[in-house]
Amino acid sequence: MKFLRFFVDDNIIKTGYFDGEKVIELADSIENVLNNWENKEYIEDKMVASYSLEDIGFAPVSKPSKIVCIGLNYKDHAEELAMELPEEPKIFLKPPSSVIACEDDIFFPAMSNEMDYEAELAIVISKTAKDVSISDAPEYIGGYTIMNDVTARDLQRKDEQWTRAKSFDTFAPIGPFIETEMDPNNQNISLTLNGEIKQNSNTKNMVFSPNKLVEFISNIMTLNPGDIIATGTPSGVGQMKKGDIVEIAIESIGVLRNRVI
């Protein structure tokens, strides 16, 4: 199922799911919904109202306490950079303040002259995870969404570490849906810039699977409900300019669309 957070005329953020034709509002938090969606009676009991997709605005799919990102997790991206595959996941953080929703604008920061897109499959954590094994990891994954790991590449080179380059407001677009029923290890992932394909790969090219990432990260830090794990980007990373429209598609989830201003 495709779950989301959204708003209508009152601008109050609501939880719901998209049935392919309309958005059904559910009277509960996104975290509770992700932990109970397989219970048909629960879903039916929580139904409040329905809306056309055209009448809603997307909100970020969750409210993460942190966004954990993975570097160099696609074989084709490592080949593109002529780098060896990592022996263990390379992790870094983006702050919650960088999160925006599908259709929100990405702001080009004044202190940068080189801002890149990075298309990524993202894991949404649905319950507190600490020291989780790889076999138990699926119990803590509420579903999957899309993220653009926007990066000020010139600042990344200048700083020789990644915090400033990855942390500007609007640098973590996520959405539009959380898909609960999909194989994360075999999904076509692509990015278009102004309609031109720039990235085109499949998640089967990931070095470390989502389950492995949950195990690895949860043995370092506690993952909270709503936290995001961005699983890395494939080859084809490049620059965005002011006025560009960037769209990331993952076949079972949908399309994350944002404009650069």
Rank of each mutant, 00 (worst) to 15 (best):
Ile134His: 01
Asn35Glu: 10
Gln161Ile: 05
Pro176Val: 02
Glu80Met: 09
Asp19Pro: 09
Met182Tyr: 04
Lys46Cys: 00
Pro95Lys: 01
Glu54Val: 01
Leu213Cys: 08
Tyr42Lys: 02
Ile189Phe: 12
Asp104Met: 07
Phe107Lys: 13
Glu38Trp: 05
Leu4Ile: 04
Ile70Phe: 01
Lys2Trp: 12
Ala230Tyr: 02
Pro138Glu: 06
Asn186Gly: 11
Glu41Ile: 11
Pro234Gly: 12
Asp227Cys: 01
Gly71Ser: 10
Arg153Glu: 14
Ser112Gly: 08
Val214Lys: 02
Ser112Cys: 06
Met1Leu: 13
Ser126Ala: 12
Tyr74Gln: 14
Thr170Ala: 11
Lys127Tyr: 05
Ser52Lys: 12
Ala152Cys: 11
Glu54Leu: 04
Ser201Trp: 13
Pro234Asp: 10
Pro138Lys: 11
Gly232Glu: 09
Phe3His: 01
Asp244His: 08
Pro95Ser: 03
Ala110Cys: 04
Pro64Asn: 04
Arg157Glu: 14
Ser218Trp: 03
Ile12Cys: 00
Ile250Trp: 05
Val8Pro: 00
Leu213Ser: 04
Asn200Cys: 10
Glu88Gln: 09
Asp136Ala: 15
Val255Ala: 11
Thr180Asp: 04
Phe7Leu: 07
Ser50Trp: 02
Glu160Cys: 08
Leu193Trp: 03
Gln161His: 12
Trp162Val: 12
Asn188Met: 12
Ile197Thr: 15
Phe171Asp: 08
Gly236Leu: 14
Asp154Ile: 05
Lys242Leu: 12
Pro176Ala: 08
Lys241Gln: 15
Ala119Glu: 12
Leu191His: 08
Glu41Lys: 12
Thr128Asp: 12
Ile229Gly: 02
Ser209Glu: 07
Val132Phe: 08
Ser252Ile: 07
Pro86Phe: 14
Glu79Gly: 01
Leu85Thr: 09
Ala82Gly: 10
Pro234Phe: 08
Gly142Thr: 04
Ser65Ala: 06
Glu160Ala: 14
Asn186Met: 07
Lys75Ile: 15
Phe6His: 00
Arg153Thr: 08
Pro89Cys: 08
Gly226Met: 00
Trp162Asn: 14
Ala119His: 06
Ser133Gln: 09
